[in-house]
Design a protein around this nucleic acid. Structure first.
Length: 487
RNA sequence: GCUCCUGUAGUGUAGUCCGGCCAAUCAUUCCGCCCUUUCGAGGCGGUGACCCGGGUUCGAAUCCCGGCAGGAGCACCA
């Protein structure tokens, strides 16, 4: 038996998410993620995906991906393709996919049913008046019309008799509910905007509280896990469950996520791409999963990160440090080491002899072999400006894996005694003759140019540029292009 | 304004339901030291927190009350 299914002892450390309440459900656990197809997924979205996925795996249940595309004005048609790609990259296993724009008839059926039961009405008041009445706990004139009138109006609404914005189907809750957010809510309205999937076949669209309640019920969801920004939506949706006598899933709400130092908002990124400020959905200045993937952040690190954060209702601020630490832990043993010299300056070294440098491709894995460079007589290497300064100040520096060089009137090979490092001589990376032009794309969008020794890793690999940071190689041929991940 | 949710180190987290083993866990950050021909990895050590005030109790991070603070919602977005 899976030990995680056993009730934990009081003093036992929690290493996992808390248990789901499964005593009251009959079949398997069914959960869902419900992205709006307005763009690709970003780091914030990945939390709900990972957590749902983890639960479904643990209980051997099913995970449904539901595209919530009931607002035709906010849809990017590419998102229907990009989101599954992103989920796949994250390692989230989807057992079923449904699209809300396939289900308009069902939503119409339910709103008609609710109207017939007297739980919904069609309001044809000015929307401001309706809202103002609500905030004063008062009904608008439409609310108390008899059911026959409401059904008639619903027919008219459905046949576009009213102009968009002039009428809406409204779910009754309690007009004097103490929480103003819960007094009557719009369920259905007309939107005159072509839908990328259904064109102009439908122009009556459900609001999310209607479609979500219906779908969650129809799909047999047992648990709904989402952000607590949906708390009031849950309360609204529960009215629909209650009116129709539906059994409710267990609702769980985790705290809000704030992610510093990055652009997350899909609409902002989309606009930025159109206007040329961003290079695309994978622009490293954004927090999309595509951007993180490009930087070499592994999906396993993201998963570990969200598991560590858990499902508490406290708001959290994402710590890039923590995420990077988890990523470093994953990639460190795989990443080959290379010398990259940013903003290189040449150093001519006076030498009459022969030497060969030896640096391991990975310091902890000698079996991977070494990078070797041979020297005979005078030679030239490149080092970065800070190290040049150090060489001048101290008069000596050690080229890692090769030799020491001294700085006087001219620079000289100064032997291979490693003991000098104990006297504080710095050990630096250097670019041998035959190095390749390289540029590293930094998280702020800037480019660091330099030289890198010949690289035997391939595009797509993570490598560590020693004393610079971990990068993901994007191009390796006559030049090297890489994207900075973290230190 | 109203309603709801939440307050443990810089950040994330454990403990809170069922009060004592909590002078509070783990990770990360930061600072030392060791090791290492990287500012990576590894090892050792250190700094650092129970929002405040009352109450109950022999005993409160944990239970109760009151403050305060933060967040969310009050959309014909999701």
């Amino acid at each position: 038996m899976d030990s995680s299914l056993m009730t934990r002892e009081k003093k036992e450390k929690r290493t996992d998410l808390p248990e789901l309440s499964i005593s009251s459900i009959e079949g398997p656990v069914v959960m869902r993620i419900a992205p709006g197809p307005s763009g690709p997924l970003h780091l914030g979205h990945s939390r709900v995906a990972v957590l749902n996925d983890e639960y479904v795996r643990r209980y051997e249940g099913r995970l449904i991906n539901r595209f919530e595309d009931t607002n035709p004005e906010k849809i990017d048609p590419d998102a229907y393709r990009m989101i599954p790609e992103d989920l796949d990259w994250l390692g989230v296993e989807i057992h079923d996919t449904i699209i809300q724009s396939d289900r308009f008839e069902r939503y119409y059926e339910v709103i008609r049913q609710l109207t017939g039961m007297g739980h919904a009405y069609v309001c044809i008041c000015d929307s401001d008046d309706w809202r103002n009445a609500k905030s004063a706990c008062e009904c608008c004139p439409c609310r108390d019309q008899p059911v026959e009138v409401q059904l008639e109006r619903l027919d008219r609404l459905m046949s576009s008799h009213y102009a968009a914005g002039k009428a809406a189907a409204v779910i009754k809750t309690a007009i004097d509910h103490p929480n103003p957010a819960l007094r009557d809510f719009i369920a259905l309205r007309q939107v005159d905007h072509p839908h990328p999937r259904t064109g102009d076949r439908y122009n009556i669209y459900p609001m999310m509280n209607l479609s979500v309640a219906i779908d969650d019920h129809d799909l047999g969801l047992t648990h709904v896990l989402r952000g607590k920004d949906h708390l009031n939506n849950t309360f609204r949706q529960e009215y629909i469950y209650d009116y129709l006598g539906w059994r409710k899933p267990t609702f769980m709400h985790y705290g809000l996520v704030s992610i510093p130092d990055t652009v997350l908002k899909t609409s902002v990124i989309g606009r930025g791409i159109k206007e040329g400020q961003f290079t695309g959905w994978d622009d490293v200045r954004t927090g999309t999963l595509r951007a993180l993937a490009r930087r070499g952040i592994k999906p396993e690190a993201i998963r570990r990160f969200w598991m560590d954060v858990g499902i508490k209702q406290v708001d959290v601020q994402v710590s890039w440090d923590n995420l990077f630490a988890m990523n470093r832990d994953i990639i460190d043993s795989q990443a080959q080491r290379y010398f990259f010299v940013p903003n290189p300056v040449a150093v001519d070294v006076c030498f009459d002899g022969e030497a060969e440098s030896h640096c391991p491709l990975h310091p902890d894995r000698p079996e991977l072999g070494q990078r070797k460079h041979s020297f005979s007589g005078d030679f030239q290497v490149h080092i970065c400006p800070d190290d040049m300064q150090e060489l001048q100040d101290r008069g000596m520096i050690r080229l890692k894996g090769l030799c020491n060089i001294s700085h006087g009137e001219i620079c000289r090979h100064a032997g291979d005694d490693m003991g000098v490092t104990r006297q504080g001589v710095k050990v630096i990376q250097w670019a041998p003759p035959g190095s390749i032009p390289a540029e590293v794309l930094m998280p702020d969008g800037g480019l660091v140019k330099g030289l890198v020794e010949p690289v035997s890793a391939a595009a797509g690999d993570m490598v560590q540029f020693e004393r610079f940071g971990f990068v993901r190689l994007e191009q390796v041929d006559t030049r090297v292009r890489a994207v900075y991940a973290h230190r």
